[in-house]
């Protein structure tokens, strides 16, 4: 907006104000009607949809879902798109670059779009950005809502695991510690973390899995996986044996 357009806007707005109505009561009454409706909606939802108390932290079942509130699903879903699988889509895109670029664009909107035109019908670019952002966020939120249902473990079987062996115990640890809520084994499980069906073919060694489970970000910088330092050395060893054989010994 150049100086003349700014002057013209100020003149036009002063005229609009002169021909206008007082804030009280003409704006205030509308505000209060909407606020009262919103309050009624909140109280109604609080009565209709009681907020439950979830299972406490560190229970024996320890099947956990690392799911945020629904309004973070669009960010959470991005973790599944950028999974550190290759150099083109590093996980830093989802954890740092994309959110921060979006935030800078959001704060900077009035300094990016400096045109005088305010009618949305004459701002096709702004309208397309608004529609794309809305569809993108709605889609990611929907995907985060429906796509993240963790499949309970135990359904997946591997050949080569004898009952009572260390690997069998490792598979039990994998199922009961809720690993499937992020990791996929033979098509069952979450998509937040890497698919582990053939992770053994990487020849990382049992010790690597033990260290990674205790402190993921120490071994793989940038990893979002929570540390499972609470597992016993035997459990870690069993889990490592199980994972290290996936795709090689256990298929």
């Amino acid at each position: 907006m150049n100086r003349a357009q700014q002057e013209a806007y100020r003149r036009d707005y002063a005229q609009a104000k002169k021909e206008g109505k007082p804030f009280f009561p003409y704006a205030i009454y509308k505000d209060h009607i909407v606020a009262i409706l919103v309050f009624a909606g909140i109280i109604g939802m609080a009565i209709w949809q009681r907020v439950p108390v979830g299972p406490p932290v560190y229970t024996a079942t320890s099947t956990f879902e690392p799911r945020p509130e629904w309004y973070f699903f669009f960010l959470f879903q991005m973790l599944k798109i950028f999974k550190n699988q290759n150099a083109l889509v590093p996980v830093i895109m989802a954890t740092f670059l994309v959110p921060n670029i979006l935030m800078v664009l959001l704060v900077g909107t009035p300094f990016i779009d400096r045109r005088a035109e305010r009618r949305i019908s004459k701002r096709p670019f702004a309208l397309s950005v608004a529609i794309l952002v809305f569809i993108g966020m709605a889609w990611l939120t929907y995907q985060g809502e429906t796509g993240a249902t963790p499949t309970s473990g135990g359904a997946v079987t591997f050949t080569g695991i004898t009952p009572g062996s260390s690997a069998a115990a490792g598979q039990t640890v994998f199922d009961t510690e809720g690993c499937t809520s992020c990791h996929m084994l033979k098509g069952a499980g979450g998509q937040v973390g890497p698919n582990l069906t053939t992770v053994g073919t990487k020849n990382l060694g049992v010790d690597w899995f033990v260290r990674h489970t205790k402190c993921p970000s120490c071994v793989t910088p940038g990893s979002q996986m929570p540390p499972f330092a609470g597992l016993t050395p035997t459990q870690l060893q069993d889990l490592g044996t199980f994972l290290n054989g996936l795709g090689t010994t256990y298929k």
Binding site: V57, F64, E65, F72
Partner: peptide, 14 residues
Amino acid sequence: DQRAYWATVVAMNI
């Protein structure tokens, strides 16, 4: 609770 705890652990890792 379980979900809140682990979700926040992941958020802090991020």
